[in-house]
Structures are given as C-alpha cells and as structure tokens.
Deep mutational scan, measured.
Amino acid sequence: TETYTFDSEDQAEEFAQRAQKKGYTVEKRKENGKFKVRVE
C-alpha cells in the first residue's frame, strides 16, 4: 500500500484513474488542503 500526495485535485484524479486502469484499488481523500491517493 502506497499513499501519494498531490497539490491539485486534477493531478490526484488523473493518477487515480491510471492506477485503477492497472487494476489497483484506489482511495482518494482530501486532507489539509492536499489530495491524497492511497493505492493497493
């Protein structure tokens, strides 16, 4: 499980979609103005 942090929602969304296409489970959340994407 890895967590990635992005400054913009667009970046987080793009990353999450790519990860989902590769078959990963993706969980997105906003925390302290940053966008976190957890991938497993």
Rank of each mutant, 00 (worst) to 15 (best):
Y24H: 07
T3W: 15
V37W: 00
A19G: 02
A12D: 00
A12M: 09
E27G: 05
Q20I: 14
E2N: 14
A12N: 00
E13P: 00
R18N: 12
T3E: 15
E14Y: 07
K22P: 05
E14I: 09
V37L: 03
T3P: 04
K34I: 10
D10H: 09
F15P: 00
G23Y: 03
Q17Y: 09
R29D: 07
K28C: 12
V39F: 04
E2M: 15
D7T: 08
E14N: 07
D10P: 07
Y24M: 08
Y4H: 07
A16I: 10
V26T: 10
E13C: 06
G23S: 02
G23I: 00
K28V: 15
K34W: 07
S8E: 09
G23R: 01
K22N: 13
E31L: 05
F15A: 03
V37I: 08
E9A: 08
V37E: 01
Q20S: 09
E13H: 06
F35T: 04
F6P: 00
T25M: 11
A19W: 14
K36S: 11
R18E: 14
T25A: 10
V26R: 00
Y24F: 13
Q17D: 11
N32I: 02
Q17R: 12
K36H: 14
K28S: 09
F15E: 02
V39N: 00
D10S: 11
T3Q: 06
R29E: 10
K28P: 03
R18G: 08
K21W: 08
R38C: 05
K34G: 05
K28M: 15
D7G: 05
A16W: 04
K30E: 14
T3K: 03
K21E: 14
G33L: 03
D10R: 09
T25K: 14
K30H: 11
R38E: 09
F35S: 02
V37T: 00
G23C: 03
V37Q: 00
T25E: 08
F6D: 00
A12G: 02
Q20T: 10
V26C: 06
T1I: 13
Y24G: 04
T25C: 08
T1F: 14
T3I: 13
A16Y: 09
F35W: 15
K36V: 15
E14R: 10
K22H: 13
D10L: 10
A19L: 14
Q11N: 05
T1Q: 11
S8Y: 10
E31D: 07
K36P: 02
D7L: 07
V39I: 13
S8G: 05
D7F: 06
Q17H: 09
N32M: 06
T1E: 10
S8W: 07
D10M: 10
V39S: 01
F15M: 03
R18H: 11
Y4E: 02
R29V: 15
D7V: 06
D7A: 07
Y24V: 04
K30F: 15
A16N: 02
V39Y: 03
A16Q: 04
E40M: 14
R38T: 14
Y4A: 03
D10E: 14
Y4Q: 03
K22S: 11
N32P: 02
F35N: 02
F15V: 02
K36Y: 15
G23V: 00
E27H: 13
Q17W: 09
E9N: 06
G23W: 03
E14D: 11
E40Q: 13
Y4P: 01
